[in-house]
Simulated scan of single mutants.
Amino acid sequence: MRSIFRCLLLLALVVPNLSGCGILEPTTGRLLTLHVGPQTVDCVGFVPQQCLLVKERPNDEWTYFYGSIGGFDFEPGYLYVLQVRRRSIRNPPADGSSFEYHLIRVVSREPAPAA
């Protein structure tokens, strides 16, 4: 019985630390709903680039999204609602985000109303 307890204790101490070494891919992260605007816009992060316009709630103001969403292929002219997983990046580059985003699913994709 003691040896089983010791093994469980050892696993409890070792396994969480393996993800920090890159041995295990963490499956944690925060699920978010992102509303994505119909066009990209000029923005300046580390260098001039094109940013998506995003917001978390329909009534929020649009904000620049400087990164990318893994698995998402943006097509101009559509309003998207996406479910994404946001994960923290250990030791992010000085000029980069401390988060990475991955598409879970496209909730909706509708043509943007004519301006």
Rank of each mutant, 00 (worst) to 15 (best):
84 V>Q: 13
31 L>Y: 11
115 A>T: 07
57 R>Q: 13
25 E>Y: 09
70 G>N: 15
56 E>M: 09
99 F>S: 14
95 D>I: 08
28 T>K: 06
65 F>C: 09
98 S>G: 10
42 D>T: 13
69 I>D: 11
67 G>I: 00
97 S>T: 02
26 P>K: 11
106 V>P: 03
46 F>S: 14
42 D>Y: 01
68 S>F: 03
58 P>K: 12
105 R>F: 04
57 R>L: 10
38 P>Q: 05
1 M>N: 12
20 G>D: 11
76 P>N: 01
76 P>F: 14
9 L>M: 13
98 S>H: 07
56 E>R: 01
91 N>T: 00
25 E>H: 12
93 P>F: 00
63 T>E: 03
6 R>M: 14
84 V>H: 12
31 L>S: 01
59 N>Q: 08
50 Q>R: 14
3 S>V: 12
105 R>T: 09
94 A>G: 04
32 L>I: 02
48 P>T: 00
32 L>V: 01
99 F>M: 10
62 W>I: 07
42 D>C: 06
36 V>L: 06
53 L>E: 06
112 A>R: 04
18 L>T: 08
35 H>Q: 06
60 D>I: 02
84 V>Y: 04
95 D>R: 11
113 P>G: 05
107 V>G: 02
19 S>G: 06
56 E>F: 04
52 L>A: 12
59 N>F: 13
88 S>F: 10
64 Y>D: 14
66 Y>E: 15
8 L>P: 14
61 E>F: 03
17 N>Q: 08
30 R>H: 11
78 Y>P: 10
88 S>H: 13
69 I>G: 10
22 G>C: 06
48 P>E: 04
76 P>G: 02
23 I>E: 04
57 R>I: 06
27 T>W: 15
33 T>P: 01
1 M>I: 13
45 G>W: 04
79 L>A: 09
104 I>R: 04
74 F>Q: 05
100 E>W: 00
55 K>I: 00
22 G>V: 04
94 A>T: 03
95 D>Q: 08
10 L>Y: 04
57 R>M: 03
66 Y>L: 02
47 V>F: 07
6 R>I: 08
69 I>C: 12
57 R>D: 12
82 L>R: 02
87 R>N: 12
33 T>Q: 15
32 L>D: 13
32 L>F: 03
12 A>H: 10
69 I>E: 02
15 V>P: 03
63 T>D: 00
102 H>Y: 05
51 C>A: 11
1 M>C: 12
104 I>V: 15
63 T>N: 13
7 C>L: 13
94 A>D: 08
21 C>T: 08
1 M>W: 13
60 D>M: 11
108 S>D: 00
53 L>A: 11
85 R>W: 07
100 E>I: 02
44 V>T: 15
